[in-house]
Write a protein that binds this DNA or RNA. Sequence first.
DNA 1: ACCTGAACACCGTTCAAGT
DNA 2: ACCTGAACACCGTTCAAGT
Lengths: 209, 209
Amino acid sequence: MSSITGRRTVNGVLAVSRRPGQRAGLHRAAVLAAARQLLADGGAAAVTIRAVARTLQVAPNTLYSHVDSRTALLDTLLDDLLAEVTAPPPDVEDPVAGAHALMGSTYDVLTAAPDLVPVYLNRQGARGPNAVRLGQVLDALLERAGVDPASVPEARRVLIVHTIGAAAFATAPATEADATPPLPAHQVRGSFHHSLHWLLTGITHAPPR
Amino acid sequence: MSSITGRRTVNGVLAVSRRPGQRAGLHRAAVLAAARQLLADGGAAAVTIRAVARTLQVAPNTLYSHVDSRTALLDTLLDDLLAEVTAPPPDVEDPVAGAHALMGSTYDVLTAAPDLVPVYLNRQGARGPNAVRLGQVLDALLERAGVDPASVPEARRVLIVHTIGAAAFATAPATEADATPPLPAHQVRGSFHHSLHWLLTGITHAPPR
DNA sequence: ACCTGAACACCGTTCAAGT
DNA sequence: ACCTGAACACCGTTCAAGT
């Protein structure tokens, strides 16, 4: 109860039983793990500095020894997610199919945490190493598919916008009508793949001048 | 200074010089106008209940006499924006061109307040009368364009996802690389129109079974 | 370097009470 | 019906100080 690592309850609030100078033995990895748990349990809104600190039995401001800001923490969480995207091997036979698979995997991964995506959209394109890596893979595939190198950034952008937009929408009901019932998730995923095909067809067959 | 409608400064904080029971003569329209101003000046994050109240020289909780919640207020703001979308006449000659114009106008309108879009994406598809109206117009155009009625909801969804996603991305720099410089706004808008064309081509020429 | 206490400047929302 | 005062339960972040 009053051991160095124990808890103390003051006014019904969980308090820290450490005095200034005593270490909690926290690492950045532990902070990220706690944040990921909160994300899984309560969505992006639940990932607050104070909630993470509460989970770790630590004063809120200690987190700033391991993380720059709440925004940076959410950035890290998102880029961590992107690490799970499976990219095709660079020498895959069909580069168009490869690009399709890459965006499909991205959709599936982002869909696992759909409310992280709007948070990501909210900021101005700060991105982590995994996002950069995936972008480079996509660029290479598009070039191999015959897209004019000058048009690659635009094509990349179109595909990413669509994939992220679709993922952000994935959990929303129907898109606007009261009349039509919400589509089931597998059908939403299906229409994403349709539209992805249409975009890739347009990009490779009717490239922008 | 101490008139009924005047201001009083207490500890450097603007206070209200009205006592409980005295009316401020507030209407819902005035609340919305103040909120719109804050949105224009400081983005969606600046539209807080307390900031709107401050603008109107009113206690924060009086806003709840005119608005259900902050979320509902933001919903209203977004749907108001959509009122400015120009829809083609229902009997427009070319329904595909009509649908293209409709989504193009939506993109332009949403782009004027891009940081409202993520807020909108964050919630689960609550939508106002203007969104419903535009959805119905789009449905009619798609059906006239020869899309199988059973596929209309999916087609509508694809177009809306892409348009909203593109608008949300419109102010972000380049999409992930450090290498490529950010595209200028007119070019971003151009690639949106390209991709819109590709999607409409796919929807009308290669409809999903 | 890591951590706490205290503080600053905020939030949305509810509830009772006043006219 | 409209509005205030007070309160509740939060936020992110900074700063000084302790080891």
